[in-house]
Design a protein around this nucleic acid. Structure first.
Lengths: 325, 325
DNA sequence: TTGTATGCGTTATCAA
DNA sequence: TTGATAACGCATACAA
């Protein structure tokens, strides 16, 4: 314990010399350097990092904002961020919001308070102007298409991904297509919705509201979807499902109910998480871990170099053909 | 921006009065209180939290140490910790270690440096004496049975859980039983191993090393297990699988290979995550989210009250019968 | 190569 | 009810 002053006294040097030694600065005589380290050992001294943060005006901590940490979609992003951050000597402060606005705002406040040097918002519910109001306090990266707004972003092109999925289904002869999504609000969801409607228009099909399933996030939700499908007089022949988890629920429960997949119901999902491979679900792979890494990199470049090479980065997806379409 | 001194000047009061207002202390005249808030508004002021941390000697941040954040076992624990922490005004700093010793030690160092007020270790690879060396710096809760050692812990009784599983399999007529586990080291793994060997002994069966599968964490690993089983002359009739993920991989791949479950191979897994319900896997439910909550509570009690009601807490499990045994 | 002095922005103690 | 001032512990500009 103790502080830098005690070390200085015990080693017979000044506090600045101690500081230099502790931070591996050059221009310190080897003999004093040794004396300092000995004093450090003897007193079992460690820096008080809060004092460092205060003096430096930075913490080397990045805030990560997401709704649910135990959903594979988000935990995979976090894994990516974490890997990259650790390599750069940064740490992660977690803000699990459950999509509650006040919790998202609290995270932004933490940036203003200098608790974190930057923020990665994996998904949000608050209006983007709220976020914009905080951008002077540090880099904020959004994992969505910010379309010309002056904000940092690394995102998966969900429009393109959904379009790809729709075209694949149409190519396979489907015309009665529905979809399942986590929520209907949010930039990413809107992008998917747009792609869906446009694709329908191209084949002159009018949308059926009852074929659109909201609040689909977990395996259980897939069960709900199937249950709902079973009550319908006219059912879609194919479903675009925005999460492998939900698709897994649909596939297993549908089969349990004797529904043939893909003959009676084709399933095309997104993520390409392990579960989709196990269940042979055709899916569109999303580079979630990579997105996390790139998002951190963007923050990092911004913090270290002060300016950016690029302010926005789009990641593309690809189809993994398996047995459910 | 600005600091407390500027607020004081603008509001025509002292810094201490500003501090009092900011922290809702009593004994401040309403009129001064108003003046302070107005100055805060006008200067768009926010506290510098690093200064607060330094002055108070605490951060209201808890460190969470785990190997992989994107594994459901761990992300479920984190979800529990997070929920409880947020409610108590605490935040979470994530230490994803990949079971690398230096990363675990780094987390402990962060406690000594006062970056975090306490630490929850969900799983570890370093020796417990390493951890013990840091316990003077703040509460450290382990998610394992610390058996009389003077450490804080909230844990699932994996011995009991494995014993329960073995007895259930034996009761169902199985004698040739193997098991799959994430790793063979670690307290929890040892507890499972003990239960396994003891149960075998009770039915006079000698263990078969080739029926024990290590490094089983994800769905893909289940595939590997099945592949390995298929090459064996004599196969186990039942498998205890320490993770629903792995069990899911086994069940789906085995069925794909034409193996009948449970007739040719019974599967009893652990967790009771959604995936096991979807695949009708018989499993033993582990209260992971609850464990996270309780672990945080223990830290919190320690920090706020200074002493503990209990130092160790055991959580029990229960069997969920489905179709794979 | 080393030391002195000051700043970082709060909270807390003590006196008034 | 208020204010002055001393911690809190480190980094760093500047002087030597």
């Amino acid at each position: 314990m103790g502080n830098i002053r005690e070390i200085a006294k015990l080693a017979g040097v000044s506090v600045s010399t101690v500081s230099r030694v502790l931070n591996n600065h050059p221009y310190v005589k080897e003999e004093k350097r040794k004396a300092v380290w000995e004093a450090v050992e003897k007193l079992n001294y460690t820096k008080n990092i809060n004092a460092v943060h205060l003096a430096k005006g930075k913490t080397s901590i990045i805030g990560v904002v997401l709704p649910y940490v135990n959903h594979p979609y988000f935990s995979t992003i976090v894994e990516g961020i974490s890997m990259e951050a650790l390599q750069c000597g940064y740490h992660l402060l977690l803000f699990q919001t459950s999509y509650e606005a006040n919790k998202e705002i609290e995270a932004l406040e933490m940036l203003k308070m200098k608790q974190v040097d930057g923020i990665i918002i994996c998904s949000r519910t608050i209006h983007w102007e709220w976020i914009e109001a905080y951008k002077d306090y540090g880099p904020i990266v959004l994992c969505e298409n910010v379309k010309g707004k002056d904000m940092l972003s690394v995102y998966i092109n969900h429009y393109q991904a959904f379009k790809l999925g729709m075209n694949y289904l149409i190519e396979k002869g489907h015309r009665k297509i529905g979809y399942c999504i986590g929520r209907t609000t949010g930039t990413n969801s809107k992008a998917r919705e747009d792609a869906y409607y446009e694709a329908l228009k191209q084949i002159n099909e009018s949308p059926r509201p009852e074929w659109i399933f909201d609040h689909c996030l977990y395996i259980e939700d897939g069960k709900r979807v199937v249950t709902s499908l079973l009550t319908m007089k006219e059912r879609p022949t194919a479903l675009l499902v925005s999460s492998d988890q939900v698709a897994a629920g649909i596939v297993t429960f549908a089969q349990h109910k004797g529904m043939k997949i893909p003959e009676e119901l084709a399933i095309l999902s997104f993520d390409n998480h392990p579960i989709s491979e196990a269940l042979h679900i055709t899916t569109i792979e999303l580079p979630l871990s990579l997105m996390g890494k790139r998002a951190f990199r963007m923050i990092y470049n911004h913090l270290e170099s002060g300016e950016m090479t690029k302010k926005t980065e789009e990641l593309s997806v690809h189809l993994v053909e398996r047995l459910t379409v």
